[in-house]
């Protein structure tokens, strides 16, 4: 999976820790998702989408 998390985060001038705090996960989780090492579960993907007020497919896409 590819994702635009890093770009969306940068647009809001959030650090990885800021985003992690808003999502209720660890900074390491955010880093692993951004670098494509880890694909989030559907509930977490929905939480991310709700936070950025975007549909999931606008954030995550297939390789």
């Amino acid at each position: 999976m590819n994702n635009r998390l890093k770009v969306l985060r940068a647009e809001r001038s959030w650090s990885q820790q800021d985003l992690a705090d808003r999502l209720g996960v660890s900074r390491q989780s955010v880093n692993a998702i951004e670098t494509g090492r880890y694909d989030p579960s559907l509930p977490l993907a929905f939480t991310i989408a709700e936070l950025f007020e975007l549909p999931i497919e606008a954030i995550f896409s297939r390789d």
Binding site: G24, V25, S26, Q28, S29, A32, I33, Y38, P40, S41, L44
Partner: peptide
């Protein structure tokens, strides 16, 4: 553990 990445 509440963090799914750490559970993995």
């Amino acid at each position: 553990e509440q963090d799914e990445f750490f559970r993995l």
